[in-house]
Design a protein around this nucleic acid. Sequence first.
DNA 1: TTGTATGCGTTATCAG
DNA 2: CTGATAACGCATACAA
Lengths: 333, 333
Amino acid sequence: MDKKYSIKDIAQLSGVSVATVSRVINDNGRFSEETRKKVLKVIKETGYQTNFSAKNLRMNKSFSVGILVPDISNYFFATVVQKIEKILFKCGYSTIICNTARDEDKELAYLKMLESKGIDGLIVISGAKAFDINKVSSSSKIPFICIDRKPKDKKNTIFIASDHYQGALDATDSLFNSGSKHPIIATHKHYSSSGADRLRGFKDSLEKHGLPFDTSRNQITLTTENTTIKMEKVLKSQPEIDGIFAINDTVAIEVLSALLKLGKSVPNDIKLIGFDDEPQDKHTYPTLSSVKQDTDRIAQVAVENLIGLINSTGITSESIIIPVELMPRDSTL
Amino acid sequence: MDKKYSIKDIAQLSGVSVATVSRVINDNGRFSEETRKKVLKVIKETGYQTNFSAKNLRMNKSFSVGILVPDISNYFFATVVQKIEKILFKCGYSTIICNTARDEDKELAYLKMLESKGIDGLIVISGAKAFDINKVSSSSKIPFICIDRKPKDKKNTIFIASDHYQGALDATDSLFNSGSKHPIIATHKHYSSSGADRLRGFKDSLEKHGLPFDTSRNQITLTTENTTIKMEKVLKSQPEIDGIFAINDTVAIEVLSALLKLGKSVPNDIKLIGFDDEPQDKHTYPTLSSVKQDTDRIAQVAVENLIGLINSTGITSESIIIPVELMPRDSTL
DNA sequence: TTGTATGCGTTATCAG
DNA sequence: CTGATAACGCATACAA
């Protein structure tokens, strides 16, 4: 009742050899229906459970994957991680979560740990710089895929991302469509490959509408602390500003709050749109327009590809772009 | 360059036995300073890394802990998980995350998997029912601690929670203090032990102010879909309502949005306060009063106690309550 | 101070 | 169809 059963115990209890038990458990090799029943019965009765440490050691496989994420309290990251974990579990893998806090040293330390644990695969989500697995250990060939973060070595890797460019283009277009003549983009200090793509989309929409992009006039960089002050200054020196594309919803909501404090009306004075379609967008006042990423599909594609990588030796190189969806609400009416 | 080194390789390369290498690595047993340097040098050069599967098998320890959480895209859960993971990593443990989605079957499946992997400990965060580890396997004695979720067997377990009762009491008091005469509580369908404590706090504040609690008059249950309709109905039949304590900030923000739609002014017509102090509270209009949980301390205490449990055989039973802090903002001015 | 030998629980190879 | 046994990489009791 209080002991942990091993395959050996099961063998003894059911009067067969350990080899046969292993065969039955893994449904591998041949054995009679009779022994199968016998063994399965004992397993049920004893509540036997595979010892994964042993199995891993023997098979050089761990049935677990690591996931590197900058900040799990971010809505988009949390949602993607959650969905990935769910699918992986269905496929028999467990997920080791690693919160890198955008710290390169931490990232390295995590990578080492994960390698030690013999993870079968790795998913890298976002982060400031291009991802270079060779920094950990040139010997290791852990299959990995990148989400929203370009790998350093573009060959031999899979890269998955939302169509940030198109989303930003659509978002900015929607500012114009709702009457804005002089939109700007609000970014924050963190720089990621997705952020760069969104900036490109903004620029191209601007130029499409006959406005040349100029960083000093069309872009503001905010930190959490200075939003209102900075906004006030900018709006004073450029009173023509009548639309803001925020690099994500967190920034958008800070901007919205600042605008209201400054007595500006959204969308009457200034149109506003964000990115990520966070749940609270529906509950701001006015409700916040945004661009929705297809996290279901991102997660699905990520896991499918990773498992493909794990099971096959053929190395692929691919860049997968997931479409996004514009979610117009009152802030761009 | 492309091989994975084992302790045996290191032994050969440095001209000692595997036992000595093991001793040096674990700084265990005695060996000369000279051999130490020799071995360490080879380890550096080769980039040797411990094979944890083997170590785990031998030591019957996995240096990993599981964490059961209902929904990681919830701000409070995400924050706590993130902080726990960070501290655990510093202590040499990796964290296997399990998103139970409040589903008991999933929880069971996860528990089995975690047991198979030989996790050293378990952290259970919230969830609807009391937690009963015996459902997995009567044989297993995995040390575990509960956060925000009462364990079934109160003996032999550690329970950590914010002072939900006091927080709710303070929150409701603050409604009265800002002039509310007839506050109600807004809950949602999920029921947890923390939710029950918050409800108790609300009731006691009511009675303290001379109002007997009556479910049909002082409590409304919302779902995400029906908030505005339900609010309208309630406010029509009970126009005296002038204060709302929402069971958490997500509910509070939905309520706030509904109230604005219904033409009610917050805080002039109705005072409002939530729970959890989510970041967006600072950016709603008006800013949302709330009760802040000390996630740093919760995480710290949780890890400390779990590691204590793992390393000692002495079983403890304890209930640890972490103080909360009232965060008054404009919605209760 | 160091080396030898054993076993942890599995799977896989090879006989039977 | 089934059984004995080697091997995975490591820590440790025991010998030297």
